[in-house]
Amino acid sequence: MAVASVPHEGQADQLYVETRALRLQGFLLFLVSDLVLFSSFIFAYMYLRNSGQGWPPPGITRPAIALGGLNAAILFGSGATMHYALENFKRGNFIRYAWLLIFTIILGALFLGGQAIEYTTLFREHITWAGSGIFGASFFTLTGMHGFHVLCGIIYLTILLLQSVHGVYDKQRYFGLTAGTLYWHFVDVIWVVLFSIFYLV
């Protein structure tokens, strides 16, 4: 019974492979529970919206669709850049990876900027979180929660960028980047849903 007493070549890789599987599943489960959180609020929104007061409720103007569409395109675009950032990292193309990641972060920040403009416009029309009935409650809660996720994502990606500059990840071990990409895609995809239910229907 000579148990793994001497760490040998490749054992560390074995360790990485196994912990990676654990961490990947754990991270996906985290995303699932986050999805449930969003779904619950979306259920609340749908429930209130269909409670027979008409939508938008009297006295409420919806946020402008033009800016909303542009903002959506920006966020979806950042998803595409993030995807290719990871692809390039996998292929060892570090410079292109870094630029794409920076570009992703900038697009994310732009999205938040667009969101801020949208909020200011609504505030100017006296549509607020607490003072505008169920529209204000559901719109600001859901988009605010999503915006908070984007903000966290920006911070997360910045940390990943700094880490990768310091050589934390290499071609064999880059689970952190995979997780970051998963998270960023998740935030994008949530916006597909939120965009549809708030701006399109």
Partner: peptide, 22 residues
């Protein structure tokens, strides 16, 4: 009605209350 009433009254059945009944 749309100017003066619809903020408080829905065009729904009695049970559909906004501020006042439908």
């Amino acid at each position: 009605f749309s100017q003066k009433c619809s903020a408080c009254h829905a065009l729904g059945p009695f049970s559909q209350r906004v501020v006042g009944p439908g």
